[in-house]
Simulated assay, not measured.
Amino acid sequence: MSNTRVDVAPFITEQEFPPLQHFINGAFVESAGEEYSEVVNPANGQVIALVPRGSTADVDDAVNAAHDAFRQWGSVTPKEGSEAMLAIANVVEENADLLARLEAHNAGKPLEVAGDDVDGTVDIFRFSAGAARAFTEAGAGDYVEDHTSFILREPLGVIGAIVPWNYPLLMGAWKIAPILAAGNTLVLKPAEQTP
């Protein structure tokens, strides 16, 4: 047996990192602010990235973009919304290895646990895609004498969602998928420790 050192590839290469910017209106954009946060892998204390902290102007841009997107998304049919969420699930599944490695590096968790988080993300998008097309309770009924009541489901609009540090991808999906399934749009604020 040799004592030769074997070079191990880095957990995440520089090319595999997503853009370290805000994602607003379907694109990565530079921050309007000038403050940054260090993202530290809690498993080893290594600083893995500097990410922009959202400024008031960034939040305003994100909310305005979500309002604009709601005009279209809020009126899609359940079939169209379901198909979009299934497409998201497919993209996550196709990139499962990279996403698991990013999640493990970002949150300092074992790769196997991070892989479970990615699998759960795929599942919640597929579940919500089905739920968007299947209502389980009666849509109408006679609840008061001589009156028929109807249930009309309408999206609310833009939803603000905050994700904690410990399951950033999975908890993000737990918020994003049902919000989209209900016909809403959202602005998601990740934890500054695990963006």
Rank of each mutant, 00 (worst) to 15 (best):
F23R: 12
I24P: 02
G26E: 06
G26S: 06
G26P: 04
G26Q: 06
V29D: 01
V29A: 09
E30T: 03
S31N: 01
G33C: 09
E34Q: 09
E34T: 08
E35S: 06
E35M: 02
E35V: 00
S37V: 06
E38R: 07
V40D: 04
V40S: 04
P42E: 04
A43I: 05
A43D: 04
A43R: 13
G45R: 10
G45P: 03
I48N: 05
A49L: 06
L50Q: 15
L50G: 05
V51C: 12
V51A: 05
P52H: 04
R53L: 00
G54H: 00
S55G: 01
A57W: 00
A57N: 00
D58S: 06
D58C: 05
A62Q: 09
A62Y: 06
N64L: 08
A65H: 02
H67K: 09
H67A: 07
A69Y: 02
A69W: 04
A69T: 05
A69M: 06
R71T: 06
W73L: 03
W73H: 03
G74W: 12
G74S: 08
G74F: 08
S75T: 15
V76S: 09
V76W: 13
T77H: 13
T77A: 08
T77S: 15
P78T: 09
K79D: 04
E80V: 11
G81D: 13
S82Y: 08
S82E: 08
A84Y: 03
M85H: 04
M85F: 07
M85Q: 11
L86F: 10
I88E: 07
N90Y: 11
V91C: 01
V91S: 07
E93R: 15
E93F: 01
D97K: 09
L99T: 07
A100V: 02
A100N: 05
R101P: 05
L102P: 10
H105S: 15
H105Q: 14
G108F: 04
K109I: 13
L111G: 11
A114V: 05
G115M: 13
G115S: 14
V118H: 07
D119K: 15
G120L: 06
T121P: 13
T121M: 10
V122A: 02
V122T: 05
D123R: 15
S128L: 13
A129R: 12
G130K: 11
G130H: 07
G130P: 12
